[in-house]
Simulated assay, not measured.
Amino acid sequence: MLSTAELALAVVVVAALTFACRLAPFVLLRGRRSDLVDFLSRTMPLGVMVVLIAYTLDGVGADPAGGVPALAGIAATAGLHLWRRQIGLSLVGGTGVYVLASLLLG
């Protein structure tokens, strides 16, 4: 069994490694431009959104209590993003619409 100090140390080490792994690509690619980086900067946002939509719709059936909130949340997120181009607004607004629709239909 780990002591409290050992557990705290493990959490700090894991957090530091996670932060370093997330920071490394930005540090390593700073000031460097390539065709690959340009391509990824153009295509990754759309790719990430496609994956998120697929994940959201996974397991959603024809039941209105499951499908309607998911589709409403996706539509609200896309609409807000097209309107304002602010990721925070899009995520919060889409999530809010999803939760509200889930509460009303659930």
Rank of each mutant, 00 (worst) to 15 (best):
S3Y: 02
T4K: 15
E6L: 12
L7V: 10
A8R: 13
L9T: 11
A10V: 14
V11S: 11
V12T: 14
V14N: 09
A16R: 07
A16L: 12
F19T: 14
F19R: 01
R22F: 15
L23N: 04
L23I: 12
F26D: 14
F26P: 08
V27N: 06
L28V: 11
L29M: 11
L29H: 07
R30D: 05
G31A: 06
R32A: 09
R32G: 00
R33I: 10
D35G: 13
D35S: 10
L36Y: 08
L36G: 06
L36K: 10
L40F: 11
R42F: 03
R42C: 04
R42L: 11
T43P: 00
T43C: 04
T43I: 13
P45N: 05
P45Y: 15
L46N: 05
G47M: 02
V48P: 03
M49F: 14
V51L: 01
L52P: 00
L52M: 10
L52S: 05
I53Y: 02
I53H: 01
A54Y: 11
A54G: 01
Y55P: 00
T56R: 05
L57F: 01
L57N: 02
L57W: 01
D58S: 10
D58I: 02
V60R: 12
V60Y: 01
A62G: 12
A62T: 08
P64D: 06
A65S: 11
G66M: 10
V68K: 00
V68C: 03
P69H: 07
A70H: 02
A70C: 04
A70G: 02
G73C: 02
I74K: 00
A75H: 00
A76R: 04
A76P: 03
T77P: 02
T77H: 06
T77R: 04
T77V: 04
T77W: 09
A78M: 13
A78R: 04
G79C: 06
G79I: 13
G79A: 07
L80D: 07
L80F: 10
L80Y: 05
L80N: 06
L80T: 09
H81M: 15
H81Y: 15
L82G: 12
W83G: 15
W83S: 15
R84Q: 12
I87D: 10
G88C: 05
G88M: 03
L89T: 08
S90L: 07
L91P: 11
L91I: 11
L91V: 12
L91D: 06
V92H: 03
V92D: 00
G93M: 07
G93H: 08
G94S: 06
G94A: 06
G94D: 05
G96I: 05
V97Y: 00
Y98I: 07
Y98D: 09
V99M: 06
V99T: 09
L100Q: 06
A101L: 11
L103M: 13
L103A: 15
L103W: 07
L104Y: 04
L105T: 03
L105K: 12
